[in-house]
Design a protein around this nucleic acid. Structure first.
Length: 523
RNA sequence: GCCAGUAUAGCUCAGCGGUAGAGUAGGGGACUCAUAAGCCCUUGGUCGCAGGUUCGAAUCCUGCUACUGGCACCA
């Protein structure tokens, strides 16, 4: 089977990471970990977009070289991904020589096949903002507002990609590949929008305006702008257009990407129109087109997260306060794939304390505690009575359901399946009442069977939690002294020979609400 | 303006043609292995509004309202 190839958007190194960046990477990480757990080889690519005007401007403001500025911000992302346990296999930094070489090779090839041409654009240009203005920027009076400063009429030469040559192909493609985009309502949106996107795509900036980019191989007075730099990362870092050496993963075995995980803001037109058209122009067939997994945004108490309102949530601070387990669990649990979600620390704490602490954590704790108290950690091997066998059979069904849900990228649903399994196990503890069984020697076998069943259920629950909360799930497995269950393996209804469980210790300490929330800087 | 999405219990959401559901929060009870957790029972809703189709609609259709988003020749 082809390796599972998953990418995220590469983050722009102009501003430090916020909760949305963290969410996207955790999302991709959970899917990557899940696939590895299933035994599939995984190539998980993430990275940073380091070129561009804003980086150049920010660096100038601080009086340092753009590379230094980009590296500094990149470092913040790298640190955060380490904190969050993002298990990426490759790091796509767009200033890497390998990437530059691939971009230039692709541009040269497209130029030779007449996909690129040079043309002059003339329009209103804001000297202060260093950008061309459109009618959208005009005020109600039809004039450009004072925020643009001096506006001049300017002619500028640039290189263009013949996007319009692809429009017919794109429409056909979106018609035939119904599952190009997940969720499907995004594909509908894309189809409607794609028909309105006409004209060609400007892919360059004159160096007089922007130096911080990859030089066009056939015209040294220009750098390529945004998309032919950033989007190419998905293939350049997978080995496309790069000289192969020993350690390089062969591009052909990886492509196409199983998921480009992106936010809804960059679907149209970048990933939904430009990217497939670029690939098409490069000679990729319809079968070689990747799949887009589009996620929603997090708002903060119903408000859009934005720097101007100061309600940006710093993921590093959240980890500091609540721990990586609670954050990863909450973000995956409360956001329905593809839809927007509202972030609140109350809910983060609620999810953690009820489902993880009271539910799973307590199940593990009480199970191990009783196993030690009544059986010195080693339940005797007995054949299971019908009710307990049925309980384990239900667990096996839950695993199947989980696999279906995770394969469909419905992570929130998968977690719910885990929670259901835990609730069933907790109910079993009460209905079987081991503390009563322990008082009567006649029920000795029954007690062994119940404890074994509970340990096996806890193991299954920890297995399902593993992709979402690897640290905590690993700790549970350590305490119950069993390896994770293998997906697709046969249901196991017995503990191994000579089994002895470890000492229980709370894995999910209760979280308390702080008087002042992290996102409350405005108050 | 065009195109979508959402509107169901205080909160988060599921149901998508056949007598209103889950979790959580609130109330009550029995228990004691456990992170005063867990278990059982229970109070909460004229399913945004108005029409229509149907024997029957939260579920399909039409219109309206509110909120969210995409697009509108942004190089």
């Amino acid at each position: 089977m082809k390796p599972f190839f998953i990418t995220t958007a590469i983050d722009y190194t102009n501003a430090p990471p916020h909760i949305g960046h963290a969410y996207e990477k955790i999302l991709a990480d959970v899917l990557a970990r899940y696939q590895r757990q299933r035994g599939r080889e995984v190539f998980f690519l993430t990275g940073v977009d380091q070129h561009g005007q804003k980086v150049q401007q920010s660096a100038e403001r601080e009086g340092i070289p753009p590379q230094e500025f980009a590296d500094r911000v990149s470092e913040k992302f790298l640190t955060l991904w380490k904190t969050l346990g993002i298990s990426y296999d490759a790091w796509a930094a767009t200033t890497a020589p390998l990437h530059k070489a691939a971009v230039q090779r692709i541009l040269q090839d497209l130029k030779e096949r007449d996909w690129l041409y040079k043309a002059t654009y003339s329009g209103h240009y804001s000297v202060r903002q260093e950008q061309f203005l459109t009618d959208k920027e005009r005020g109600p009076d039809g004039e450009f507002g004072p925020e643009w400063g001096e506006v001049v009429l300017l002619n500028e030469e640039n290189w263009y990609f013949r996007l319009s040559k692809c429009s017919e192909w794109l429409h056909g493609f979106l018609e035939s590949r119904k599952d190009f985009v997940t969720p499907d309502f995004r594909q509908t949106e894309l189809k409607n929008a794609a028909t309105k996107i006409t004209g060609d795509l400007c892919i360059s900036r004159p160096k007089s305006r922007l130096e911080w980019g990859i030089e066009l191989p056939f015209d040294s007075s220009f750098v390529t702008y945004v998309w032919f730099d950033a989007l190419i990362n998905y293939i350049s870092f997978a080995g496309y257009g790069v000289e192969m050496d020993e350690g390089q993963v062969a591009f052909k075995t990886l492509w196409p990407a199983d998921h480009h995980v992106i936010g809804k803001d960059i679907l149209i037109p970048a990933h939904g129109v430009y990217w497939p058209c670029m690939l098409h122009a490069m000679g990729f067939s319809d079968e070689q087109m990747p799949h887009l997994l589009v996620h929603g945004f997090w708002s903060l108490r119903g408000e859009k997260v934005s720097k101007s309102t100061g309600n940006v949530v710093d993921p590093a601070a959240l980890v500091e306060t609540y721990g990586v387990t609670a954050l990863r669990y909450y973000l995956m649990r409360d956001a329905v794939m593809g839809r927007d979600a509202d972030f609140s620390e109350e809910r983060l704490i609620l999810r953690h304390n009820t489902e993880l602490g009271n539910g799973l954590g307590n199940l593990v704790n009480r199970t191990l505690s009783m196993t030690h108290r009544y059986r010195d950690g080693s339940p005797k091997q007995v054949s299971l009575p019908a009710d307990l066998a049925a309980h384990l059979a239900a667990d096996a069904e839950s695993v199947k359901t989980f696999v279906v849900q995770m394969d469909a990228t419905q992570i929130h649903a998968g977690i719910e399946t885990m929670v259901d399994l835990v609730n069933r196990a907790n109910a079993l503890v009460d209905s079987a009442a081991p503390w009563k069984l322990a008082k009567d020697p006649e029920h000795a076998d029954r007690l062994d069977a119940v404890l074994s069943t509970l340990i096996l259920s806890a193991r299954t629950a920890a297995t399902l939690l593993l992709p979402v909360a690897p640290e905590a799930a690993t700790e549970i497995l350590r305490q119950i002294a069993l390896p994770a269950l293998e997906f697709g393996g046969l249901a196991i209804s017995a503990l191994p020979e000579g089994y002895r469980c470890g000492e229980p210790k709370p894995v999910f300490p209760r979280l308390e609400m702080l008087v002042e929330g992290i996102g409350d800087s405005a108050t």
